[in-house]
Design a binder for these strands. Structure first.
Lengths: 336, 336
DNA sequence: CTGAAAGCGCTAACAA
DNA sequence: TTGTTAGCGCTTTCAG
């Protein structure tokens, strides 16, 4: 039976090695006191047979899955995809893996995902910008890092930590740049109303406007799923009505791209007549029709750090761990 | 115990409903013959307690996990992300979920992912453009849809089906367009050598060149992970050497964007002096510095169809199912 | 240092 | 229509 490498169980390995399953288990998990000799023998048999432990059985027995769940709204948005890369890279180096729940900005799918997390007895989750902030819905023995899902003023505790980029500061810098470049009639196009990141960016925008005594401001919301299209429609409508604006703060780069497209199409010169600042600094901010001035977020780092943190939370509990606010910076390109 | 909704097991439900676990199991899985009365009672208790079946126990018992595995090389590439959306949308409507393995063009990670698939006893996989074509490595009771992972001439069988876009035709159309627009010195920048899609596109390019008697052709490979950067470096080097070319067939839109950036930076007019055609038609093909002429693939549809197919394969076996080649089309924008 | 045995939560015969 | 029971593959006391 050494040629077929399927459905080999711990029992098969034990039998072939002439030991008990307990010993095999100990060797596999490295927490035993097996002699070098038996250890080597078992390892050899494992190699030969291609034995791979049944993770369902293990999770069942331990009442705990060793995967980390990632909840996010849209995997085709590069912002989230790059954060996932950060998470995975770090998880991989910790010998763990993850399961991604792509919730499509849909509360039902989010709810269902949480049910799957319960069903699978996953005890570590990274929730990125999720709607369902009602954290009671996670089993009480679950650890979590919430990224942008909660106001970071939320106190972290034994099981939860809150991460966020410094959205307010980023928005302030973006708005300030527009004003310093001479814009007086500002348009902000936000992401989803109610999202913590959206609201903090709004705050930063408003504060900058106040500090510089800018009073002509417009604000519209781009519905998610298709930010680009939403942004184009907003600009189109404004242009048609003849509403004047000379500076646009787009709450993400996808929105900024939509604004840019529509403006250029209407024959408006950017940045001469209208200036634009985006947010996130995803790759096509660089490669857009006009490379975008935008607010850079340390996306990979936040993901990587979240992975490290959630695993520590799970393994050692929260040793006085604080919430984290990640610094952002303004990247000047050609739309301002 | 009706207020806490944690760690409620089938036993708890059975006890509270005054029935056996077998009956509960039957009701939950809908394959029993319970009376309306007991069924309703059980359903009510489930609702009250918030019982959710332990998927690890179920998978263990059934020797089969009901998740579908997705293997792909780079989730931050919008092409793959959008295909995932298609897969998930369809899987969701079938009441299944998926686990994504993001292998980073890394054979080790791919191997490890396959091990996790084995460990978890997942029996359905969708493998997109994966390296490990040695399908023997999947357990013999696994069903799979391979997308772009194998030459589609591979015969499908009881357990495997091969999907592919019509890469050769797409490449032919792209190349033909360049030639018809007057290009005579063609540069092709390929994706990873050896990938079936790469090789088929190469074939299409070569065939078009032959048909139109174009002899001055150059061919370089852009290494994955950072296609944009790789493409920029290739163009930079060529420009420095003074190598002449007036038409570029980029094997994906990310590469095309890199080419475009470098060309414009060198003061070369596109499409006047050099024309470019990309491949995939991902969103920023539309929003690039110059909207890209590119080959459109039905990405969402391929994903959706793959999901449907793999589930059917699993549930009913392969009822004479053929491989599929998806049609592509050329989208003309502003780089030709 | 190693083995025996209980049991995680669930499903599927089989009995009643 | 419903209940009893064996056992999926694994980890983990507890004995030896």
């Amino acid at each position: 039976m050494t040629e077929k490498k399927e459905n080999v169980t711990i029992k098969d390995v034990a039998r072939q090695a002439g030991v008990s399953v307990a010993t095999v288990s100990q060797v596999v998990n490295g927490n035993g006191h097996a002699s070098e000799e038996t250890k080597n023998k078992i390892l050899r048999i494992i190699e030969e047979t291609g034995y791979v432990p049944n993770s369902n059985a293990r999770s069942l027995r331990k009442k705990q899955d060793d995967a980390v769940a990632i909840l996010l709204p849209d995997i085709s948005n590069e912002f989230y995809a790059r954060m996932v890369q950060g998470i995975q890279d770090t998880l991989f180096s910790l010998g763990r893996n993850c399961v991604i729940f792509n919730t499509r900005y849909n509360e039902d799918i989010e709810k269902q995902s949480i049910e799957l997390i319960c069903a699978q007895h996953i005890k570590a989750v990274i929730a990125i910008n999720c709607i369902q902030m009602d954290i009671c819905k996670l089993p009480s023995d679950c650890c979590a890092v919430y990224i942008d899902s909660c106001p970071v003023t939320e106190k972290s505790n034994e099981r939860y930590v809150y991460f966020s980029a410094d959205h307010e500061h980023g928005a302030y810098l973006a708005t300030e740049k527009l004003i310093q470049k001479g814009c007086r009639d500002l348009l902000m196009i936000t992401c989803k109303t109610g999202e913590p990141a959206t609201e903090q960016r709004r705050k930063g925008f408003n504060r900058a406007c106040k500090d510089y005594q800018i009073e002509n401001t417009l604000c519209y919301e781009a519905k998610p799923r298709d930010y680009n299209d939403a942004a184009q429609k907003i600009v189109q409508r404004l242009l048609k009505k003849g509403t004047h604006f000379d500076g646009v703060f787009a709450q993400n780069d996808i929105i900024a791209t939509g604004v840019l497209t529509q403006l250029l199409q209407a024959g408006i010169r950017v940045p001469d007549q209208v200036k634009i600042v985006g947010f996130d600094d995803i790759s096509f901010a660089q490669y857009a029709v006009l490379p975008l001035t935008t607010v850079h977020q340390p996306i990979w780092e936040m993901g990587s750090d979240a992975a490290k943190t959630v695993v520590e939370l799970l393994e050692k509990g929260n040793e006085g761990r604080q919430n984290r606010v990640f610094p952002i910076s303004l990247v000047i390109r050609q739309t301002t």
